[in-house]
Design a protein around this nucleic acid. Structure first.
Lengths: 225, 225
DNA sequence: ATTACTAAAAAACGAGTAA
DNA sequence: TTTACTCGTTTTTTAGTAA
């Protein structure tokens, strides 16, 4: 049974109160809550316990359960996702903190072959430089990991006499909900999932008066044609 | 594929922006969003469309989808449920409006054989009368439907020389988050899922100064030992 | 590039039942 | 009453592939 559906059963257990204290949960009762047979309810509890989402104990003829730390984290992340899907449909919102890059972003972005492709896909020639945004909230990191798996616009690599310039993937975005921008994932990225590289037609640090460590919001537009 | 898991895919589509306008969703892309194969993504879309949760169209080589009204309702109800599970664990909260019953509630509740059982299960002898609360919000109605399927405490029926008194099921509850109460479901109830019958050791109308039509909150405690 | 069919494998399910 | 095993059935999944 996969995580996707296990999560939904975790929510049910949370609703019954298993997030706070051990509760008595005869599988015969759970079967009506889960909408499955008693046998399946039993199996589901065992799978949840095996995955360490719940702690399960047999006491005087009954099963008692409580969500584990891992189970609570799972449920909280899932709730955030559901609410987020409703409140921010079509966009992936991430908040993080401005960070100084190595300055090599500027070098890459300024290459004419890249510039042309950015204009074609995003609609603007980017200012030569990237704004690195470091994510701290685990939820935003998971969102970034998710985003990086999506297709986006393909930026093709190329080679000059001297060296090879790798390909990338880019998404339309907004910074601080107002400034047109793009989020770039280099194919051979040096960053982990906790860093987002942002480009824009304007020099963002100036336009938004940003200093290292300032909080900034990046909203990726998933359906910007 | 059951409602439980279809809902989770609906959330994903909502996140992609399919709640607002038609979006292009190649099954090859969806497969990474859903975490399944391309073939399954295709099948899932077809099932969602068959259940009328989404409208799906094939246009110049791509699939475009948008959530239907039914899909949006489903997603909204599910979100409420998830948030509710997190914010009100272990209780089922329902809000409704005070209504006049036929007065027969009082007749039943006052029967000694019932009174004793209420004292045993709820811990109090109920005031002879019930407060009928009519639910309007569809979410509360669905919660009530759900609750009515749970076991609760069994109240046994009995017979006198004159007639038969049916069995019931009772849950511990709080009215307005403060007054000790019980929610009763008669086995042969005359009410639909939009009415909750509340009993209490005190005369609720007086204690809370309630008149017909007043809004009242009933919180059923699922784990009150 | 797509979508979605077929066929075969894998996973999930519940009836029956023992403990 | 419980839980959870076995086992036969159904459902779900994906690889291969045609269109």
């Amino acid at each position: 049974m996969n995580r996707r559906v296990l999560r939904t059963y975790l929510i049910d257990l949370l609703k019954l109160g298993a997030g706070e204290k051990m509760i008595r949960t005869p599988t015969t009762h759970l079967s009506v809550v889960f909408g499955v047979s008693q046998q399946s309810a039993s199996r589901i509890l065992n799978e949840l316990a095996k995955e360490d989402y719940i702690f399960k104990e047999f006491r005087d003829g009954n099963i008692w359960v409580i969500l584990t730390e891992k189970g609570m984290r799972e449920v909280e992340e899932y709730m955030k996702y559901v609410v987020d899907a409703y409140e921010h449909p079509g966009t992936i919102v991430m908040e993080g903190y401005v960070e100084s890059g190595m300055g090599e972003g500027a070098y890459y972005i300024s290459k004419r072959r890249y510039q042309i492709q950015f204009k074609d896909t995003l609609g603007f020639y980017p200012y030569p430089g990237t704004l690195n945004v470091r994510l701290k909230d685990p939820y935003y990191i998971s969102q970034n990991r998710f985003l990086r798996r999506l297709p986006g616009y393909k930026i093709k690599g190329f080679r000059t006499k001297e060296r090879i310039f790798g390909g990338a993937k880019v998404f339309k975005a907004l910074v601080e909900d107002k400034i047109e921008a793009g989020v770039v994932y280099a194919e051979r990225s040096i960053h982990g999932f906790d860093v987002v590289e942002v480009i824009s037609p304007v020099y963002l640090r100036e336009a938004l008066n940003l200093k290292d460590g300032d909080k900034v919001r990046v909203s990726v537009l998933l359906n910007a044609d």
